[in-house]
Design a protein around this nucleic acid. Structure first.
Lengths: 203, 203
DNA sequence: ATTGTATATGAACGATTGTTAATATACGCT
DNA sequence: AGCGTATATTAACAATCGTTCATATACAAT
């Protein structure tokens, strides 16, 4: 009774959880409302007590993709960036953490699967995933440059160079883990990238 | 009569062309055999005179993805890599060319769309797109190192750093062009990457 | 206890899917 | 000219899709 009550209460959340799992494995089109309902343990018609339609379920799920922010807050940036290599190391480790975090991984997979099928997702990818990081890193490198911690150059180019490798490693990890393959070879890749990159820009 | 004859003759090719366009825009699941047939100008049942089923059409199309090799042949590598920056510049320009080439772009889109839905594509991506390039570049950097053209270090890490940014730019270009947006900002990004990278490794 | 509300089920719908079979048409070959 | 082969059409199929509706059940509030 008590269990049932509890179960009833959070059906909506269970639906979202099931849907996010299925969407991140088979995409929007590859996931049917019947499969979602089955994973929750209800019939498909019951879904419509909680959501208007399939699209709304996907929309709710996809909102989760970009609300896992990097923990380096913008205001502490100028202080952080004075630490030079520590700053970029910290950033890379955050990135690594998200790469191997189960929930983040799921959302990253969903993003990759639907990136070319969903214009809204593309725009969010550009603004939240790319521009935001480029901006933050550019500012960091600019400050480092002003304090002669690194050689002079275009901070945006540096940001590009730095983030692109992180992204590439993440994509590879995601692909390997999707097939339950080992990511041992890539385990230290993030750190190696930080080392190489810092050698490239340091004064 | 003559025209019709010609049309008849290459229906199979027309199907593949139509299918590759549709698959690269809407993915495998998002493309129906009726839509393919419609684009060719025939009824869907006629497709089955040329292909066993939908999957076979996709398979034939996807074979095209990885058969656009980089023109830098393996045997000329050791000679090429002695040119140092010229070598990596050449490589990057090849990459840029493919990025903006219509046919290559289409195949790259298809690859990205189906990457997480098709295990075979993932494996090919890893072996053809990743490992092959890493290997070629690693060997190049190794030779440059032996000839003191660049600073010492792990050639594979260098290869990683070099290819990841190229890939990241290509992905961005592909996304922007998918929405018919301008890629002006990214036009010189490849060259800037080469310059930055060479500064990072040169002796 | 009764009522109202929220949530579940079962059944059905129209649309679309990939595929097949019977049939028609056009072409090259002898 | 006629025959055989290749390729087209028309029609239908079973399956699956997202969605709706009438109805049943359980819970909270009165």
């Amino acid at each position: 009774m008590n269990k049932d009550t509890k179960k009833r209460k959070n059906t909506k959340e269970l639906i979202l959880k099931a849907a996010s799992t299925l969407f991140s494995e088979h995409g929007y089109r590859g996931t049917s409302v019947r499969t979602i309902a089955q994973l929750v343990g209800i019939k498909q018609s019951a879904l419509y007590n909680h959501f208007k339609n399939k699209e709304e379920i996907f929309f709710e799920v996809s909102k989760e993709i970009f609300n896992t922010p990097f923990s380096i807050a913008d205001n502490s940036l100028s202080k952080e960036s004075l630490t030079g290599k520590v700053f970029i190391h910290k950033f890379a480790m955050q990135y690594k953490l998200l790469t191997f975090d189960k929930a983040s991984e799921k959302m990253f997979r969903l993003l990759m699967i639907e990136l070319l099928q969903n214009e809204g997702l593309r725009e969010q990818f550009m603004s939240e995933f790319h521009n935001k990081n480029i901006k933050m890193l550019s500012e960091g490198f600019f400050i480092m440059m002003q304090n002669s911690l690194i050689r002079s150059g275009d901070p945006m180019i540096m940001a590009y160079e730095f983030i692109s490798t992180l992204f590439y490693i993440r994509l590879q990890v995601t692909l390997l883990r999707f097939d339950a393959k080992s990511t041992d070879t890539l385990a230290t890749q993030f750190e190696k990238h930080v080392d190489f990159f810092w050698e490239s820009i340091k004064n």
